[in-house]
Design a protein around this nucleic acid. Structure first.
Lengths: 111, 111
DNA sequence: TCAACAAGTTACTTTATGTAACTAATTATA
DNA sequence: TATAATTAGTTACATAAAGTAACTTGTTGA
């Protein structure tokens, strides 16, 4: 293991995107800045993992954490430029899913 | 957990693509049909997981397993139409990686 | 016959994820 | 003023997935 002949950049990108929950978090944030509990409720992740992933994605400069010193304090997560640049990718996944994934028991989703 | 309000098709697609190793296997097969050990050497996966993932991807109709009754027997894996339809996605990941991922110690890779 | 290869499988260890309870700060409610 | 509720986390523990390596089966070439 551990030494492939593939492109290291590609492997790094795949590592980020295919880390569990990351794609769903990024997809969710495409619709605008959101708070911890909003993301949590939207994608069904546990608080433990959401905190962990948000930290990871912030470290990768894909999302930005903004603290609003209101009362009570409000913390919002949003996509950085780097994060926003993943939009075409997310749209590709969505398009592929619409064409190739069969979920007869579920209705069509909005684009 | 377990009940999100996202599109079920999208979640299914993300589940497949972001399952560890799947994207690398599919990317690797974009360059043509390959045997078990070729994929293994190319992406650095263990034999155990490669067998498991190849079975999963075959069950999803993303790859095809062809047995050539030569001597010794030759087994080749290739992308199905559904698998090939993931090419734009893979290219997007590659393009994103080239633009946003910094690997100063590694050289540029072929497109 | 013996070593080597190819495609898997089995057994076992390590890491990641899921679940739930717990903080700390604030706020609305009785 | 207690009391419960909310928000963004964290901690502790159980379960599931991934990593490692040895083993199997069938065949080949020396």
């Amino acid at each position: 293991m551990e030494d492939s002949s593939l492109c290291p950049r590609f492997e790094k990108a795949v590592g980020i995107i295919s880390q569990r929950w990351n794609a769903l978090i990024i997809y969710q944030l495409l619709s605008g800045p959101q708070r911890n509990h909003e993301i949590k409720d939207a994608i069904g992740i546990s608080g433990r993992l959401l905190s962990e992933r948000l930290k990871d994605l912030e470290a990768e400069d894909i999302i930005h954490r903004e603290v609003y010193a209101e009362t009570p304090v409000r913390i919002e997560y949003s996509l950085t430029d780097k994060g926003h640049s993943l939009k075409p990718l997310m749209k590709d996944i969505k398009a592929w899913a619409d064409e190739w994934i069969d979920t007869p028991t579920h209705k069509q989703c909005k684009s």
